[in-house]
């Protein structure tokens, strides 16, 4: 697709702005920012990927994946207001997910160890895990706020923070995983997923495209589970101090 052809699709942005103005939705500024950011980010990343793919150097693959994880963790951290050390805990969850999924994919020869495969699959897996991490953190906050009395009652009976938090943690981990499970259930029925669509447009055999898509769906499923569980178990102890008290200075 040429830049000229692409420029025609800017009409969709204009349409969104016009609708926002007409109905006084007040989101036209956000639409412009979103469109410009998406365009700049994607064009820049397109050129960077071109360089990385051409260089065939391991260090660039690692750097790209590290950048993806750092940006994802920074983004998800926004949902974890008041939870200390959230960035590092989210980053840790994403790193574990990345290592596990790529170990299986590359280790079993599902994909070759090449930048074009590793970086693109990492982006999809980490991107979805980031959403799970954000949901988990958000739900964890609410669970602690709403369940404060129950948590205090368990602590007062001499229960450990883990015993006090376990039912809350399970709910938060479920909240992180459910959107991925639900969207996996309806995939292909409601929407054709991005990776498959891209391959079909690029001329790939649809059946071959389906195989790749299934691979990535299963990775995303595992990714959301691993990320939610790792981050959940890393995060809940930070809500308590060494005397097994719910910290008053967090979550406020």
């Amino acid at each position: 697709m040429s830049y000229v052809s692409l420029s025609f699709t800017v009409l969709f942005v204009a349409l969104s702005i016009a609708l926002s103005l007409w109905l006084r939705l007040g989101v036209e500024r956000d639409i412009v920012v979103a469109a410009v950011r998406a365009a700049v980010q994607l064009i820049v990343i397109g050129y960077i990927l071109k360089l990385v793919f051409a260089s065939h150097r391991l260090v660039f693959i690692v750097l790209m994946v590290a950048l993806i994880i750092a940006v994802a963790a920074w983004n998800a951290r926004g949902r974890a207001k008041g939870i200390p050390g959230a960035f590092w805990r989210i980053a840790c969850g994403l790193v574990v997910t990345e290592i596990l999924t790529q170990a299986v994919l590359v280790g079993f020869g599902v994909i070759p160890f090449q930048a074009r495969y590793v970086i693109t699959t990492s982006g999809m897996i980490v991107g979805n895990s980031m959403v799970a991490a954000g949901l988990l953190m958000n739900r964890l906050r609410r669970e602690v706020e709403n369940g404060r009395n129950e948590i205090m009652a368990i602590l007062a009976l001499g229960g450990t923070p883990r015993q006090a938090m376990y039912p809350r943690l399970v709910q938060a981990i479920r909240a992180g995983m459910i959107p991925t499970i639900d969207s996996t259930k309806t995939t292909g029925l409601v929407q054709l997923p991005g990776m498959m669509t891209g391959q079909i447009i690029a001329g790939q055999d649809p059946v071959q495209a389906v195989r790749y898509q299934l691979m990535i769906l299963f990775c995303i499923l595992a990714g959301s589970a691993v990320t939610s569980i790792v981050i959940g178990f890393l995060t809940y102890p930070t809500l308590f101090n060494r005397y097994q008290q719910l910290r008053e200075d967090v979550l406020t």
């Binding site: 009395n149 129950e150 007062a156 001499g158």
Partner: peptide, 30 residues
């Protein structure tokens, strides 16, 4: 040790916390 202290010193709150389940489950919870 915190766990032992809180077993020896019991606390009852103004609004009673009731856990899901039967009265038996609640009484034996601790």
């Amino acid at each position: 040790p915190v766990r032992e202290l809180r077993q020896r010193v019991g606390m009852v709150f103004q609004s009673p916390v009731i856990f899901p389940g039967s009265v038996r489950d609640n009484v034996l919870f601790g």
